[in-house]
């Protein structure tokens, strides 16, 4: 079910673009999630019983000064958790989740292999959480476009021109007040 190709004419579907930093889930059969990936990774999750699907789109951030590791996993982990929580809120069960991973290309050969780092983070997350990885199309040097129908789990994957993909520079940690503490 998760592997059926999408027919080329998605008439009547509402296409929702999943931007970097977003995680969306739905059981709506008239929706199609769509995203273009360079070094970023998109996780597609699907619960075949609840017929709920979701997609996120992330790029690991550079760590704050003195953090000591090559990349900051907090943001990727946050977007993974956000996706899982969105799925559960729509009626999916964590034990039923199946995953696809796409993206993680090393588009700019002069940069650190941020695409590979993103891909490895995503694989490790799924393994740690016990979520089955059914299909992956990661790495390489070409940008990808992913269309995903959340209610059926159908995926269409195409390679696209690199210029269509979002910038490949690792972003700084998001500016919004992340990690803010409020004591009652």
């Amino acid at each position: 079910m998760f592997h059926k190709p999408i027919l080329p004419n998605p008439s009547g579907l509402e296409r929702v673009t999943v931007m970097q930093g977003q995680a969306l889930a739905s059981a709506d059969a008239t929706l199609e999630f769509s995203t273009v990936l360079g070094s970023c990774v998109a996780t597609c999750l699907f619960d075949p019983d609840a017929r709920v699907g979701g997609m996120n789109h992330f790029l690991l951030a550079e760590p704050p000064a003195g953090y000591g590791t090559a990349v900051d996993e907090h943001y990727g982990l946050y977007l993974m958790e956000l996706l899982v929580n969105e799925m559960l809120a729509k009626g999916a069960r964590k034990s039923k989740l199946k995953a696809h991973l796409y993206g993680g290309a090393n588009v700019n050969r002069n940069m650190m292999k941020i695409g590979s780092v993103n891909a490895e983070f995503a694989r490790k997350f799924l393994a740690n959480e016990g979520i089955a990885l059914m299909r992956e199309d990661l790495g390489g040097t070409q940008a990808r476009r992913v269309d995903f129908r959340p209610a059926s789990g159908q995926v269409r994957l195409r390679t696209v021109e690199d210029r269509l993909a979002p910038p490949v520079q690792p972003t700084a940690r998001p500016a919004k007040s992340l990690g803010d503490v409020e004591l009652f």
Partner: peptide, 17 residues
């Protein structure tokens, strides 16, 4: 609850809290 912290957490802020 004593306090509320939004993920993704900042390790320094968490430790301070």
């Amino acid at each position: 609850a004593t306090g509320w912290i939004v993920k993704p957490f900042d390790p320094a802020k968490l430790v301070a809290a």
